[in-house]
């Protein structure tokens, strides 16, 4: 079972992940239309690039925008959640051992204790995100079961991985569940809201170009995000 999920199934899910994202990328860019979107993407390109980069950059910096500063608590949750969610799997020692075994290379790794803390951080942040979703009327009204499902897909690999690593109950069961849930997440990324993994950058770039080219970028120092 372990061989199957880490072998063919892993290849398949990585394949779907990459091809899916590629499709998303092509579909998004092909769907842009200068006249309908009212942004001259291919004229005034320098302003467009500047606008796009500014728009992405400021939003990647914690407290880098008015909005992040307006919601400091949530901003901390969001950044902790996303940084840990992305960094932990990539720099986890266990994963890099696998990389080295199979492909002959590895990345720098995180100390095990830190990785543990980061895993817990993802889980705890997710719990708070869920609580916020339920507690705040302005978020509750937007919430659909789908939102919980997406969050569950994203957090499941961390929960199962944590249980497997600490050998709570059956290791064999948890490790397979861990790999499977990871693969589910990979496959889900192109098809669900998790596609913001890529589309965040595209959407931000698009709006940045809008502001950079059309809405003032050619007359001022750039949008004060």
């Amino acid at each position: 079972m372990y061989e199957f999920v880490t072998g063919p199934l892993a290849w398949l899910s990585f394949g779907i992940f990459f091809i899916g994202l590629l499709y998303r990328l092509v579909w998004y860019i092909r769907g842009l239309n200068w006249q309908m979107d009212r942004v001259t993407y291919s004229v005034n390109v320098a302003y467009g690039i500047r606008g796009a980069l500014r728009s992405i950059f400021f939003w990647l910096v914690p407290f880098g925008t008015h909005s992040w500063r307006f919601y400091p608590g949530f901003t901390i949750l969001v950044f902790v959640f996303h940084i840990c969610l992305l960094a932990t799997p990539i720099f986890l020692m266990g994963h890099n051992v696998l990389l080295l075994e199979r492909f002959g290379f590895s990345l720098p790794t995180l100390p095990e204790g830190l990785a543990d803390v980061m895993t817990l951080a993802v889980i705890v942040a997710a719990v708070f995100i869920i609580l916020r979703r339920i507690a705040l009327p302005e978020v509750r009204i937007l919430t659909k079961p789908y939102d919980f499902l997406v969050l569950a897909i994203a957090v499941a690999p961390f929960l199962t991985g944590f249980l497997a690593y600490h050998q709570v109950g059956s290791y064999d069961f948890w490790i397979v569940a861990h790999v499977l849930s990871g693969e589910i997440m990979l496959v889900a990324i192109p098809f669900t809201k998790l596609s913001h993994f890529l589309l965040f950058f595209l959407s931000r770039a698009q709006l940045g170009m809008d502001y950079g080219i059309k809405r003032g970028g050619m007359k001022n120092k750039g949008m004060a995000w």
Partner: peptide
């Protein structure tokens, strides 16, 4: 014809986080 990738993406990826509320 006119609701293309930009608008559809906006509708689809909205994380329902509510950060637009106070704006």
């Amino acid at each position: 014809k006119t609701c293309r990738s930009r608008l559809r993406t906006w509708l689809e990826i909205c994380a329902h986080c509510g950060m637009c509320a106070d704006s």
